[in-house]
Design a protein around this nucleic acid. Structure first.
Lengths: 112, 112
DNA sequence: CTCCATAGGTTGTATTGCTACCTATTGCGA
DNA sequence: TCGCAATAGGTAGCAATACAACCTATGGAG
């Protein structure tokens, strides 16, 4: 899949991956890979900066912990993040509807 | 709609708008606006450079004509463009499926 | 001891759509 | 006659952002 197609939709995906409960960055990446059957396999250079951005924006809250000698940064959705996720979902559906209509992927009673 | 969400999908939309037959740039813009009920209303600064890019890539072919004293550049899908459109459609469906799965929204919202 | 998987991170780059602007014609209203 | 809107094409420069490439570190497998 063309990776750059994600532009503008990444934040929603990350937020959604955190909806089930707190996760650290690597786990977010793995969760996305699994729920999409490998179709969305984000490079770490995409995940971590994006999580930082979301944290700066107040949509997620991070905290350090140490598990087995390894430091982990666990992220959690904030209330703001939760409503942002909701907005992302609505936005996605609108967007998907519009693009699907424009691409003509759904049978329209015209032409051909 | 967040405009930048289009990133990576614009080309397919433009190609699709040209599928029914040759159109000039402005008409492509209008066609997209109509098929998406105003949801995708591209600024001309997006349309024209994108059409040039598609032409350079050999996906569309442009030709000048003069209609009512106004010069028009009419674009037409090439064979390459047609198969690119087909690939864009497949790609879009894969992408949409993946994002929908990751967002945890149901595949095609039955407007429920 | 080395390598891999896990885990977190940074830097720099490339793509690309958008804002803001420009040119030009036709036609309309003041 | 002048100014303006709509149509039509265009450019320059900006901003956002995902990615490639790279770095650090630990624990366990070989």
């Amino acid at each position: 899949m063309r990776a750059e197609a994600l532009k503008g939709h990444l934040d929603g995906l990350l937020l959604a991956a955190l909806e089930d409960g707190p996760r650290h960055g690597y786990a977010v990446k793995e969760a996305l890979r699994e729920t999409t059957e490998g179709r969305i396999d984000l490079p770490t250079g995409t995940v971590y900066p994006a999580l930082h951005r979301l944290e700066r924006a107040g949509l997620i809250a991070g905290s350090w912990s140490v598990v087995g000698g390894r430091r982990r940064r666990t992220y959690e959705l904030t209330a703001t993040g939760r409503s942002a996720l909701s907005r992302e979902r609505t936005g996605w559906q609108e967007f998907a509807t519009a693009v699907t209509a424009a691409l003509g992927t759904r049978p329209w009673p015209a032409t051909s």
